[in-house]
Amino acid sequence: MNLRLHIWRQAGPSAEGSLKAYDVNNVSEHMSFLEMLDVLNEDLIGKGESPVAFDHDCREGICGSCGMVVNGVPHGPERKTTVCQLHMRKFKDGDEIYIEPWRASAFPVTRDLVVDRAAFDRIIQKGGFVSVNTGNAQDGNAIPIAKTDADRAMDAAACIGCGACVAACPNASAMLFVAAKIGHLAALPQGQAERDSRARDMVLQMDAEGFGSCTNHYECEAACPKGISVEFIARMNRDFVNASLKG
C-alpha cells in the first residue's frame, strides 16, 4: 500500500516544530508501524536528510519506550496495543496518517516524537516501592495472599510507564499512572506499612510535576495499551483522602 504521512518535526526542546508530509510506498501489511517508519528513515538518511527521531526498544509492547499519537489517538487505532505492536494491516492504501509526540507540559519534547518522561521516575522515587532492604525477607509463602488480591495487584502492576494516559487526557493528568502503582502496592499486605505516606507523597509529586487532575473523561483507560482500569483512580483518591485526614 502507499501512504502519506504527516509527521511532527522539531529539532530540539526549544525549537519550533511543524508537521511535514512524507510519501511512503510499497508498505507491506505485515510490517509493524515502527518498521514502516524504519523504511522512511532509511530513505531519509540515504537522501542526506535527518531521520525522524522516535523512542522504541523492545518492540514487544512491554518496555514502554515507544509512544506517538497516531491520527489523534495515543499508540494508534488498535485497542490495548502499543504502537510497536500495531501492524499496517490496520491501514489501507491511500491513507493519510498524522503522527505527533505525546503532548503535555510535563513531557517536554526532546526531538521530533521523543519526549522526556523523567517526571514519572521522580513520582516513583517519592514512594512507589516497599521499603525492604535486600536480605530482610521472610519465606515467600509465609503470608498467603488471596488470589483475587494478587490478581488485582497484577492488573495494576501491568503498567509499562509509556505515558499514553497523559497524552490521552485533556488535562494531561497522570492519575492513571500514579494510581496503578499505588493500587498495585495497596492490594498487597507488603504495601500496607507505607500505604498512607505513599499515596500522599506520590500525589503531591504528581502535582508538582505539572500534571493536571482527573475530571472523569476515562480517555486514559481507553488509550492504555495494558487496559488498566480507572477503578484504580477511585481507589487512589480514597487512599489519598484517608492519608490526608490522618495528617
Partner: peptide, 17 residues
C-alpha cells in the same frame, strides 16, 4: 523471598500460596 517482600505479584493458587 526478596521479590515477594518487594510486592512482586507472583501468580498464586486459591489458597493464597
Amino acid at each position: 523471598d526478596q521479590c515477594v517482600a518487594q510486592g512482586v505479584p507472583f501468580a498464586r493458587e486459591y489458597g493464597g500460596y
